[in-house]
């Protein structure tokens, strides 16, 4: 019994060690849960919105961080076509003092 295990262990060790040269492979008892990010989508395309109103400051607040900066596309998932319209609308809204240029704790 003890002999078989003894022989099996050295046999297994060179096999794994020989593969990578170093036996650095970390093994987990439970498979690591890889965070699957939710698929982003363009809400304008999905909802069929064609025009973004600069007069509706409450709506535009969603595309702006708490300092009043326009959020990037990579965070909101907006398509390029509508990101341009969003930024245009936010800028118009700022000009008319419906939204601040700079702020803190906007939300």
């Amino acid at each position: 019994m003890s002999e078989t295990t003894a022989t099996a262990a050295p046999a297994a060790a060179p096999a794994t060690g020989g593969g990578g040269g170093l036996n650095n492979e970390i093994r987990y008892l439970t498979p690591i849960s890889i965070e699957t990010t939710k698929e982003k989508y363009c809400r304008f395309k999905k909802m069929g919105i064609t025009y973004i109103d600069y007069k509706d400051a409450d709506f535009l607040l969603r595309f702006v961080n708490e300092q009043g900066k326009i959020l990037p596309r990579r965070l909101t998932g907006t398509s390029l076509k509508f990101q341009k319209k969003v930024s245009q609308a936010v800028k118009r809204s700022r000009h008319l003092a419906l939204m601040p240029y700079v702020a803190d704790m906007m939300k």
Binding site: T50, Y51, R92, H95, L96
Partner: peptide
Amino acid sequence: IRFLTVAMDKHHVSFAERR
């Protein structure tokens, strides 16, 4: 003290009418 004039495209016109 402030003004803004915007040319309206067809989407804007239809949006304004709906509004």
